[in-house]
Design a protein around this nucleic acid. Sequence first.
DNA 1: CGTAACCTTGACTTTTCTCAAGTTTGGTGG
DNA 2: CCACCAAACTTGAGAAAAGTCAAGGTTACG
Lengths: 232, 232
Amino acid sequence: MNFCQACSVRNRAICADLEDDEIALLNKIGRRRNLEAGESLLWAGDEAVLVANVVSGVLKLSTQTSDGREQILGLAYPSDFLGRPFSDTTPYNAEALSDSVVCVFRRPDFERFALEHSKLEHKLLERTLSELDRTRRWILLLGRMNAEERLATLLLEIGARSVAATCRNSIRTDPDRFELPMSRQQIADILGLTIETVSRQFTKMREDGVIKVSERRNITICKRDVLENLAA
Amino acid sequence: MNFCQACSVRNRAICADLEDDEIALLNKIGRRRNLEAGESLLWAGDEAVLVANVVSGVLKLSTQTSDGREQILGLAYPSDFLGRPFSDTTPYNAEALSDSVVCVFRRPDFERFALEHSKLEHKLLERTLSELDRTRRWILLLGRMNAEERLATLLLEIGARSVAATCRNSIRTDPDRFELPMSRQQIADILGLTIETVSRQFTKMREDGVIKVSERRNITICKRDVLENLAA
DNA sequence: CGTAACCTTGACTTTTCTCAAGTTTGGTGG
DNA sequence: CCACCAAACTTGAGAAAAGTCAAGGTTACG
């Protein structure tokens, strides 16, 4: 059975651009895996045994300080790549925030394939460079923005990425209406804040009419310009 | 004239592993450039026209918020790669902190070479993945550490990188004795703090006997275990 | 309908920032 | 060689932002 040919992220993940015969080979070394919300795929510090592509769902990448303060390093949406090729140690935890599907490879299999198929390696390089850009923008957020600016930036980013992640799946979503894939505590762990500070900022934005919130996780952006101004 | 063969970072930069004939080709498309301390090589938002390797010196990568608050994204030491291949826009400013030498390539030349020589592309991928790991560790610092922990982490990192950057140049340095390549203000911009907070933390560490400071920039680590405990 | 998890709110504390002096350092010209 | 200057750094006092601790609401779900 060839999962790749029917794969919903086939044209966006690092396997895009591969020829049919290459895809067939890749299909042999990878396999699908379903993750329930809350289930982990990678553990920081473990030997890096596997790498993966996200097919559907959202995962969080995280580490913690030695005394247990958690920091989320990033989110992985469909077509994003997970894991650490060419290193022995996994640098972060990866945990599904929603029920998810990933396409996993044993790391040695994937590395061998990559070295033999430079087209794949090139795609992985492009993706890694983009991820580095995104991560550096997050450094600006954590280093120089206040709580309000941080939440504004996150809401805009989640809106944008929710659309990008689903647009090929025919469910055209609006970047101004989306469901948060994480709890308030997790938002705090992304933004480097406490849950109370996050909650107060949500309240403030609601009171200012900038956003609407229903059932806690359904967000409507009412005044995009205000958010963009804060995030800039 | 072949700079590459005599290059002090020849075995550590992305050009390591290349065959002699490949090096000769690379030598043709690159050129050396000297930068004085304070001189800029890349400007955020500009069209990405060139990429480079650091040969000697230290550079800072930075961005700022729209209202001008600066944040340093990282430091580039000898053998580190600078610039953004495969994208039209340079994502950060790069400015020399000390007098530096870089090996620059026009981006299209470099990209063409990379696509034709997958060994180089592989090295670049490994380096980008490491840089992503390092950047993510910085996210933990900015998101979850207090001022004291941040400075401790930075001092240990600079000590380690100063050694790594110079060990092939026969000047064997001690990771517990080094010269800071930046001002207090720049340290603040790296750590996401203000200059006053940084200064107070230096004073505290001096008073606690954890470090010695002479001529402002010469640091001796006296109690490495204390710093490591803070940084962990 | 009860419960547990999640979220919000309030009062208070702590950390860092801001603003305003001072002080040290390194360079320059008398 | 010294006095002076500007830039870089340090220090102090008070303000602001975010964190902590402790209740009190909501919501989802069995």
